[in-house]
Computed example of a mutant assay.
Amino acid sequence: MEIVDCVQTSLRAVGKDEHWIRDWIVRKPSRLGLGDLEIRRHEIVRREHHGGRIDILAYRREVNTFYEIEIMMDDSDADHGIRTLAFWSRERLKNPDANHVAVLVSEALSVKYQSLLEGLPQVLPFIGIDIKVLMLASKKRLVAILPSIIVQSRDVTIEIGDSANRAAKSLPFTGAESAEKNCPKNPYLML
């Protein structure tokens, strides 16, 4: 096995945009580490109740839970956070008999609003997923994408990894040091 050096980069630096990362997640939603999700809709435009857009609406049947997923490139900003919570709230009203979890996916989630992100899961079902993009030093141009759950509500049940055979379990953790313990062992590669 060859071990290569790597340098952290961004999706923009390797020529990818928010639509690319959305499609990457839609093709294989288990990459987020939330279990076997069924994508109900993506790039949803809402005109009623002040309009707006949500990136992905996913559903996990065995726990009757919808995931309202907002994707953000670069640093986190308040607009994406508010949009995530607004769509979470609207979807709860549309499907009141199901559980709902607001999910924010960002390349720099843990930097700017860390105290807010650590407080949100204490009052509502919220998951924050940080995406690291690593350029590998090799002859081929390889980039690894490593999504990590860095904050989540204690009562949210998820399944680690891609296997449907693993038992669902609650992961009560917040903060980056806990995320390091629960990172996937094989980051996803793109050429």
Score class of each variant (00 low, 15 high):
Leu85Lys: 06
Ile3Phe: 10
Lys139Cys: 08
Glu2Trp: 06
His80Asp: 03
Cys183Met: 14
Ser10Ala: 09
Asn95Met: 05
Leu146Gln: 15
Leu116Arg: 12
Leu34Asp: 03
Pro121Ile: 05
Ala168Pro: 10
Glu118Ala: 12
Leu57His: 03
Asp23Leu: 11
Arg12Lys: 08
Arg141Phe: 07
Leu120Tyr: 12
Ser170Val: 15
Arg12Gly: 01
Tyr188Val: 09
Ala86Asp: 09
Glu107Trp: 02
Asp130Ser: 06
Gly33His: 04
Lys139Met: 13
Leu120His: 04
Phe126Val: 08
Arg46Cys: 14
Arg90Ala: 08
Thr9Asp: 03
Met72Leu: 09
Leu104Arg: 04
Val123Ser: 15
Lys94Trp: 02
Gly51Ile: 06
Ile39Val: 14
Asn182Thr: 11
Thr9Ile: 14
Gly161Met: 09
Ala102Gln: 08
Phe66Asn: 01
Asp36Ile: 06
Arg92Pro: 00
Leu191Lys: 05
Arg60Ser: 04
Glu62Arg: 13
Arg154Glu: 15
Arg60Leu: 05
Glu180Val: 14
Ser148Gly: 10
Val123Met: 13
Ile158Val: 11
Thr174Tyr: 04
Pro96Val: 03
Asp75Cys: 08
Gly119Val: 10
Ile71Lys: 00
Leu11Phe: 02
Asp130Gln: 14
Arg12Phe: 06
Arg90Glu: 13
Ala108Cys: 08
Asp79Glu: 15
Leu57Trp: 04
Ile82Pro: 03
Ile145Met: 11
Lys16Ile: 08
Lys185Leu: 14
Met135Thr: 08
